[in-house]
Amino acid sequence: MSANGPLLQVSDLQVHFRTRDGSLEAVDRINFEIGSNEVFGLVGESGSGKSVTALSILGLVPSPGRIVGGDIVFGDRNLRELPERVVRTIRGREIGMIFQNPRASLDPVRTVAVQLSRALRAHHDLGRGEVRRRSVRMLRDLGMPDPEAALTKYPHQLSGGMCQRVMVAMMLSSRPRLLIADEPTTALDETVGAQLLEHLRRFKEEHAASILLITHDMGVIAEMCDRVGVMHAGHVVEVGPVGAVFRDPRHPYTRALLDSTLRIDRDSPLSDIERIPGTVPNLLHPPPGCRFADRCAYVLPACRPAKPPRLEVAPGHHVLCQETVIREFAAP
């Protein structure tokens, strides 16, 4: 593996879902990369394809979905060319995943202790006592109240926040190089979500790991991420450093998304908040040109027939939009 190359590179990834009425282009030729020791955020409305993207990286796209094109290069290996068996080992050891609903991803009939010790033993050769000591320590580090007691419990006896802590402990025990977190705080209370984000931050610092953070919350992106990709209707419409994207969004959708976000620290009247018109287009029959055209305030005649080009507006800052639109859009 090259020392300075990206940890994960997704290029021209295409995922289709076959349905009775034709094929649904959930993810359509997207490109982004995640550097080592970087937090990369994918943000978008529901139905934008961000979760499908995450599942593609793990090789877990649910049927009837299928990756129909593109490459997913992790380190120096193309995950799409490896046999399923090898991908499974990578998935367990080097890429971890935290889901939105932690209770559903835990085994309902095993205690926390059993599940944690399985995760620990899968990666380390440890004795009984050591497993227990480490389990307690991990849970305590994650802020679990009374970790000793928690070990004896079943998932249904724990709150959502506690389940999420167990899930995170299991994931972190394998010390993955890339952690994928899909809406990790959405189902949690605010104060518990804030704790979780803090743990993810610490994990990244301590293990020099990378995180792919999927969320619909621009606030989480701003607080956590180094770079961000904005998804709309199966496209990554803008990708770049968080500072640049937030200060100077170059895609009309990114700006609309930012302008429609309420802030807890501002008292702006509701009438000043932008509403993004319309909804994500039907991906069974997506518009031939730009998929945002129908909702875009800056739309030009050229946007509808032709697919928008992928332009590099600044180093490492790409936008999927017609050049003329970007120019008009950037004008004060």
Binding site: A194, V220, I221, A222, G243, F246, R263, I264
Partner: peptide, 12 residues
């Protein structure tokens, strides 16, 4: 604490 735990969409 509750208010501080809400992320603000502004990296600056």
């Amino acid at each position: 604490a509750l208010i501080a735990s809400i992320p603000v969409p502004d990296p600056f």
